[in-house]
């Protein structure tokens, strides 16, 4: 598709305008869209970075495909292919699911592989709890700063699953399918128990 304005360059933006209920649509190339001021002052810096990330992933694909044919995030269902297309992850658990893919990728984009900045109060408090707990357990190896935190992907996966199951349970209750609702409730309880145990 070519640009509706210059009729030369390929169209990149679809512009829909509604002025006083009158709708008009055109397809513009980047240059014409910019000239017309259709693109806002502040361009999205991340857009280019997504493409770059997706490109890096694309390059690494053949070998990764062999290793993990159709890897999918168990929590949000994001497929590797979709991440490769958009450069965007679906949920916190994706960071664990795709960790092996992400590590080299992030290192290339960010030049570093580990966070050295702020830690949210929630995680800091938890890390302290863990340290205290480990002191009370003689003989156990000190769990250091890499110990499981509330934000860690394993518990995150559980939380996402529980959220999804709760919604299904509500739907089942609404549909008066109580047998299914009860089964879902049991699964939620089992998951909640496990994620608590994982923390203790």
């Amino acid at each position: 598709m070519t640009c509706d304005n210059c009729h030369q360059r390929p169209a990149k933006y679809h512009v829909t305008r509604v002025v006083n209920g009158e709708r008009s649509e055109e397809d513009l190339c980047e240059e014409c869209a910019l000239q017309r001021g259709e693109l806002a002052m502040q361009l999205q810096p991340s857009a280019a970075i997504h493409d770059l990330l997706a490109g890096l992933l694309e390059g690494a694909k053949p070998s990764l495909r062999q290793q993990e044919p159709q890897q999918q995030c168990p929590a949000c269902g994001l497929a590797r292919a979709e991440f490769a297309r958009t450069g965007l992850l679906g949920c916190e658990a994706c960071y664990t699911t795709f960790a092996e893919t992400l590590r080299p990728l992030v290192r290339r984009v960010q030049g570093a592989g580990r966070h050295h900045g702020k830690v949210p109060a929630q995680a800091a408090a938890h890390a302290q709890d863990e340290a205290v707990a480990s002191e009370r357990l003689p003989g156990s190896a000190a769990p250091g700063r890499t110990a499981t935190t509330p934000g860690s992907a394993e518990t995150a996966t559980a939380r996402m699953k529980i959220g999804g199951l709760r919604e299904q349970m509500q739907a089942a209750i609404a549909a008066e399918d109580f047998e299914r609702a009860a089964a879902l409730r049991d699964r939620i309880r089992a998951l909640e128990g496990r994620s608590r145990d994982g923390h203790a």
């Binding site: 991340s46 970075i49 997504h50 770059l52 990330l53 450069g87 965007l88 992850l89 679906g90 949920c91 916190e92 960071y95 992400l102 990728l105 992030v106 984009v109 960010q110 592989g113 580990r114 966070h115 900045g117 702020k118 830690v119 949210p120 929630q122 995680a123 700063r145 890499t146 110990a147 935190t149 509330p150 934000g151 860690s152 992907a153 995150a156």
Partner: peptide
């Protein structure tokens, strides 16, 4: 917040 010790604050884009 979604946070991990390794990656820090988790964002939709790894960038």
């Amino acid at each position: 917040y979604a946070f991990s010790e390794e990656w820090g604050y988790l964002a939709a884009s790894p960038a």
